[in-house]
């Protein structure tokens, strides 16, 4: 039987894998968790919006105007943390 920590770790791994696959597919390369794809010039304004729409649709979260901080979106690691925090909040609010 899985412990809560094991479940959390599995969720983190799943989200990381999905986000990594999405970014790789759309940015044409694999990126490390701390590589800033905005600073690398890989992202245009259309993809920035697609990225927001992707996490909303895939994880059933709502990205509001207060969430529109580049720091939430600039790396795989930060994006993963943002998604996990939003999904945790959603769960707490339910």
């Amino acid at each position: 039987m899985e412990t809560p920590n094991q479940t959390d770790a599995a969720a983190v791994a799943d989200v990381t894998q999905e986000l990594s696959a999405y970014l790789t597919r759309n940015l044409g390369q694999e990126l490390g968790p701390d590589e800033d794809y905005f600073a690398l010039g890989l992202v245009n304004s259309l993809f920035a919006m697609e990225l927001v729409n992707f996490v909303e649709q895939r994880y059933g979260i709502e990205v509001g105007v207060d969430d529109l901080d580049l720091d939430h979106f600039r790396t795989l690691g930060r994006l993963r943390d943002f998604v996990l925090a939003k999904t945790a909040n959603r769960g707490a609010a339910a």
């Binding site: 759309n26 940015l27 044409g28 010039g41 245009n44 259309l46 993809f47």
Partner: peptide
């Protein structure tokens, strides 16, 4: 440009003209 960019990214193109790894 946007349409081509979207297509090329899906085929592994890196903005800036570098070859895929």
């Amino acid at each position: 440009l946007h349409i081509a960019d979207h297509l090329l990214r899906a085929h592994g193109h890196r903005p800036g003209g570098r070859r895929p790894e």
